[in-house]
Structure formats: structure tokens, C-alpha cells
Design a protein around this nucleic acid. Structure first.
Lengths: 197, 197
DNA sequence: AAACATACCTACTGGTTGGTATGTTCAAGA
DNA sequence: TCTTGAACATACCAACCAGTAGGTATGTTT
């Protein structure tokens, strides 16, 4: 059984990897199942053998990726130190990812309108568990210790992520300095603001 | 001649308005020309009489909208007062827009990958002229007067817009307070940061 | 009112895509 | 080694959609 499953699992892996690449670069509707099958070096038959339909494939791809990320960012939540230290770690982990993985971070926000109901809720939750939840936990701890001014930790988490995403975009286009500078820029902006003190 | 053009112009207007609604809610590829024609209460023939193809319609729709916005935000650039005052005005103008128009603000970022070459450059420039340019001008002035700490005004402008967009999203879902509170929240976060001073 | 131009409609095509029906290979157990 | 079911491949279909061809209606000009 192990051998059989290994082969199928390898195929599924190839398909998911191909899906990551395509969905990461283009809109959902612009990516065809044939594109994914071709890149994964399997046929459409094999593809539909493992995934019920296009939506199921997308969900599987994104779910797998977000679960990976959730585990990674959990490090920052569990880490010791000040709020700033832990936000720094969290952001560093983001910048250390390969570009293809980093690109997927913005996927949920970009494609949030294409699904409805359960599927949509599922993806949003998976995303929130992966990144916003971690950041929110760190920020809430910061509020409790007085390092962060009292406020809505959830909203602040989203704001922090938005700041990171902007720098991440510029970073991908090589218009900024190294990852270390980027991380410090975001941290200073978020904690101290852009105004002169 | 005036009468003839008026009729055509009215049709074009209907089409562009319908396009705004559809493209604002769904991805480019998910919106069909038939959808737009139906909502505009014209036939596809009329649609293709006025617009060369789908891409041309999208460009026309977004260009018109961004030019409107550019003019609106220019008010804030030309306004007197501190950097904070002018950023406040700029942000207020955003929150005062009807929801459909507000939604279009995120369109360029969402659909940035569907076009290549000239079309893409054109849309990006129209967007930058409309919003980022205004914010950047205000921030640069703030840096010059010492109200904002020295730094990359362009990047800071993008960061500010990102902060606004997050609140705008929450605001659209009625999970936040009134527009005035939202504006002040963003301003404080951007200028003073989230940390305790 | 003839000649013309613009605006618009109906009906269709060619191409693409998600999905399927059916056939073939492979791997493991009896 | 023979069987059996899972894992694929091939060939295809039905639906949809961007875009077009060709005709009709509504002005406008002279």
C-alpha cells in the first residue's frame, strides 16, 4: 500500500506544485486545468482522478500552502522577547521564503470574490489562521504588556500585514535594500509612525 | 449633430457604468461582455460598436474613473494646512465616495496581472496619477517642513494607501465606527505608530 | 427627398475550457 | 501467475464567450 500511495502522492504533489505556480501568477479564471496538467506533466484525466473539479484543486492547493505557513509563523507566536522582537521574527520568516511562496500570501485577498459560501469561508479562515492570527496574538500580547497602545488587535494586525505586503511587493522588484532593512522599515513605521517625534 | 452625439454618449455612459459595476465586483475574466450589455440595456452589437474589444472597454472604464478621482484628490494637494490636515482631507474624500466608486480603488492592484505592455503601463500610470501621486506630494511636503521624518516619500505614500485600504475594507462591512473615526485611526497610526510613546 | 452616416440589432462562428466516458497500465495480494 | 482495483491516458462533448457579418433604424446633410 505504501508504494501505491507513494506514487499517487507524488502525482498529487506535482499537481499541487504546478497549481501553486499558475494560480500565484494569474487569476483563477485565466488558469486552465490543461495549463496545470501540462506543467505537472500529467494528463487531464489524472488531474480529474485526484481532484473533483477546478475549485477543489484550488482549495487543496491553497489549504496546503496556508497550513505550511501557519506552522512556520507559529514560531514567532511561541518565541520569547518583546512584541517588537516577535514581530521582527515573524516578518523575517516572510522575507526568507522563496518568491513563489511569498507571492501566494496575497492570493486570498486577490481571489476572495471568486468563491461563495462554505468554500470562501474555509479559505478565509485558513488564511487568518496562517498569518493574521499569529500577528494578532503578538500584538495583543504587546497591548497587554503596554508596549502597544490599547486598541483593536485584529485591525492592527491587518494593518501591519498591509504594511508588510507593500514592502514585500517593492522588495520583489528589487527597488529596495536587503531584507533586513525592509523588516526594520516596517517595524519602525508600525510602532513609531512616520511623523517626527 | 449634437442630438446624435448625445444619444451615443448616453449609451456609452450606460455601458461604462455597467462595466464599473461588474468589473468592480468580479474578476476581469469572470465578467462577460454579455453581462455588461445586459446591465447597460443594450445589445452586444451596440457594445462592440462603441468599444473595439473587451480590453478597450476595461481601459475606458477605468481611465474615466481614475481621471475623476485624480481631479477630486487634487483638492487635497492644493489645500492649505499641515501635512496631517491635508492627508485628513484626502482620506475623507475617499470615505465620502459611494461604495461602488470606492471599490474601484483596489481594481488596479487586483487586476494588475491581466494586461501586459502598454495597456498595463497606461493603467498603472492612471492609478498613480489619481491617488499615490497626490499622497506622495502631500507627504513630500511634510518631509520638507519637518512634519514627517526623512525617507522615501513614494514608499510612504504606498504604505499610507495600504493602511487606508484596510480600514476601507472593514468600513464597507460595517464592522467599524463612522468615517470620521476611521480617518482619525489611520492618521494616528501612520503619523504616531501603534506603539506607546 | 435623395444620399449618406451613425447607431444599433440579430444571428452566427471559431475557439477555448471544464468536465466526462472509456480504454489502458501498473502494482499488490492470493 | 492470475486477479483486481487503483492510477493513469486518450478522445471527446457540451457550454460558454469574444468577436463578426450583415441587416435595419434613426438621424443629418445637401
Amino acid at each position: 500500500m505504501a508504494t501505491t500511495q507513494t506514487r499517487a502522492e507524488a502525482t498529487i504533489n506535482d499537481i499541487l506544485n504546478a497549481a501553486e505556480i499558475h494560480f500565484g501568477q494569474r487569476n483563477y479564471a485565466d488558469v486552465s486545468m490543461s495549463d496545470i496538467a501540462y506543467l505537472a506533466d500529467v494528463t487531464k484525466g489524472a488531474l480529474y482522478h485526484h481532484f473533483k473539479n477546478k475549485e477543489a484543486l484550488y482549495v487543496a492547493m491553497l489549504t496546503r500552502d496556508l497550513e505550511e505557513k501557519r506552522i512556520i509563523f507559529q514560531q514567532a507566536v511561541d518565541a520569547p522577547g518583546t512584541c517588537r522582537d516577535r514581530l521582527e521574527l515573524s516578518t523575517k520568516l516572510l522575507f526568507q521564503m522563496p518568491e513563489a511562496k511569498r507571492r501566494l500570501i496575497r492570493l486570498v485577498r486577490r481571489d476572495i470574490n471568486i468563491f461563495k459560501g462554505k468554500t470562501r469561508a474555509l479559505l478565509v479562515k485558513a488564511y487568518q489562521d496562517a498569518l493574521p492570527q499569529s500577528v494578532q496574538a503578538i500584538i495583543q500580547a504587546g497591548i497587554d504588556t503596554g508596549e502597544i497602545a490599547p486598541g483593536d488587535a485584529r485591525l492592527l494586525a491587518w494593518e501591519y500585514i498591509a504594511l508588510v505586503e507593500v514592502v514585500l511587493t517593492d522588495y520583489a522588484q528589487d527597488t529596495l535594500g536587503g531584507p533586513e532593512q525592509c523588516v526594520q522599515f516596517v517595524l519602525n513605521l508600525f510602532l513609531n509612525g512616520a511623523g517626527t517625534q
